[in-house]
Simulated scan of single mutants.
Amino acid sequence: MTKPKVLITGTAGFIGFHLAKLLLAEGFQVHGYDGMSDYYDVTLKQRRHSMLLQNPNFAATEGQLEDQATFDAVADAFQPEVIVHLAAQAGVRYSLENPRAYLDSNIIGTFTVMEAARRLEVKHLLMASTSSAYGANTEMPFIETEKADTQLTIYAATKKANENMGHAYAHIHDLPTTMFRF
Rank of each mutant, 00 (worst) to 15 (best):
R119D: 09
Q54T: 14
R47Q: 15
V113P: 03
L44A: 14
M51S: 14
F182T: 13
G13C: 05
D104A: 11
F28Y: 15
F78D: 00
K160R: 15
A73L: 11
H49D: 03
R118Y: 01
F180G: 03
A156C: 07
D174Q: 14
K5E: 03
I108G: 03
T153G: 10
T11I: 07
A161T: 14
N137Y: 00
E139T: 13
E163W: 07
G13E: 07
L44T: 15
H167A: 15
F142E: 01
T110Y: 04
K45I: 08
H124T: 09
E62Q: 15
V82G: 04
I172W: 13
S132Y: 11
V84C: 11
Y102G: 08
K45G: 10
V6S: 06
K160A: 14
D38V: 06
A117H: 06
T138H: 06
E115T: 10
M36G: 02
N162L: 11
K123Y: 00
H173M: 00
M1P: 08
P4F: 10
I8W: 06
F17W: 07
D149Q: 10
D174P: 02
D104G: 00
S37A: 11
D104W: 00
D149T: 08
I107M: 10
Y102D: 09
G16T: 02
H171D: 07
K45C: 03
E81I: 02
Y33E: 04
I15L: 15
A90E: 02
V82C: 06
K3S: 04
T150L: 08
A170D: 12
Q54E: 13
V84R: 00
A69G: 04
D149I: 05
D76M: 02
A133W: 00
K45F: 05
T2A: 14
F58H: 12
E62Y: 06
E26M: 07
G166P: 06
G27A: 10
T150V: 07
E139K: 11
L52C: 07
K3Q: 14
F14C: 09
T177C: 12
D72I: 01
F58P: 05
S105G: 08
H167R: 13
